[in-house]
Simulated scan of single mutants.
Amino acid sequence: MANVVGSAISRATTALLDADVQLAHDAISTTEKIHDLQCDLEDQMLAELARQQQVPADLRVVVTSLQMSADLKRCSDLAKRVANLALVSYPKCVVPPDLRGTVSKIGQQAQRLMMQTVDVILTHDVGAVLQLEQARVIVHHLVDDPRQYGDGTAMDITLVRCCYEQFVDHAASIARRVIYLIRAERVDDLSTDPPYA
């Protein structure tokens, strides 16, 4: 699921920057696949919950999987929002020329963070979770105050910025849940090094 979400945000970013209607539709189509995958996963997890004789570790995996799939679904919704912005603004690009490089960098970082999240899920590398968290913070500081661009453009840039910020927040949340799976410890803030570095 996370690989598909990474692909969706990449396509949505390119569609936004290039005012590419076909790519925007492709990104939206990809996000609809995420919804189907999440429904399938929920059905599997609910069937697992219905089994008798659950042990706490099994329950932790089931519940955490459901939470992670909800985060992935939210990421796909945010990618869809970016793609829809490309559609409604066509043929114009809502991103001012001097911000195109920054938005491209944010989109690449969002996709990279999702791919790092995939690695964390597969490898259970707790140290990588901290690196992902640090990269997430960087995305929050890449776009300055957009009010200088006028009301309409400022609103569009603010929407784009919020979509990417929320996207990387959800990616980091998924990665933090891996710590919970491994250590049965909730981690809400990774700003301190021990014991996760």
Rank of each mutant, 00 (worst) to 15 (best):
V95Q: 04
I157T: 14
V55D: 07
L66F: 04
V129E: 10
A175N: 05
D156S: 15
L130H: 04
A15P: 00
A15M: 11
I34S: 02
M1D: 02
K73P: 00
S7N: 12
D20M: 09
A197L: 13
L41E: 09
M114I: 02
Q109I: 07
L16W: 03
A128P: 03
T13A: 02
N84M: 08
V187E: 04
A2H: 03
L59R: 11
S65M: 05
A172S: 14
R74D: 04
Q67R: 15
K80P: 00
V178M: 12
A27D: 05
I138P: 02
P56D: 07
A154W: 09
I34P: 00
Y164N: 01
G6V: 09
D145R: 12
D125L: 04
V88F: 04
D43Q: 10
G127S: 09
Q111W: 02
D188K: 13
C162L: 14
L37H: 11
R81I: 00
N84R: 15
I182Y: 03
L66K: 08
V82G: 08
L122G: 05
D145I: 03
D144E: 12
Q109R: 15
A70G: 04
D193H: 04
L16G: 08
D36H: 12
A50E: 08
A57L: 06
Q67E: 13
D71C: 11
S10Q: 15
R112P: 01
L66Q: 04
A135K: 10
L190D: 00
R112F: 05
A175R: 11
S65K: 03
Y196C: 09
P195D: 07
S7V: 01
R74Y: 11
A86T: 04
V168S: 11
L49I: 02
A172P: 00
R177H: 14
A19Y: 10
I28N: 12
R136W: 01
V21Y: 15
G6C: 11
G107F: 01
D151G: 08
L72H: 07
V88I: 09
K80W: 06
G107N: 05
L17V: 01
T31N: 06
V4I: 13
S10D: 05
D125N: 09
A19G: 15
A15Y: 11
S173H: 10
V61E: 10
E42V: 02
L190W: 01
D193Q: 14
D193P: 01
T158E: 04
D58A: 01
S29L: 12
E48Q: 04
L37D: 12
C75V: 10
Q54C: 14
C163Y: 13
S76I: 08
V137K: 15
I174E: 00
R177E: 09
V178E: 02
G152R: 15
V143S: 07
Q52V: 01
L23D: 05
D169H: 09
V160R: 14
D58G: 12
A79W: 14
V187K: 10
R100M: 03
C93P: 00
I138Y: 11
D71L: 09
G150P: 07
C162A: 14
R11A: 08
R11Y: 06
Q52R: 06
R112H: 07
A27T: 08
I157Q: 12
D145P: 05
V168E: 02
D40H: 03
T31E: 12
D43T: 00
D77A: 15
Q44D: 12
F167W: 05
C163E: 11
T117H: 03
L99D: 07
V95K: 05
V103M: 12
K80H: 13
G127V: 04
M68Y: 01
H141P: 07
V55K: 13
Q116Y: 07
A184V: 01
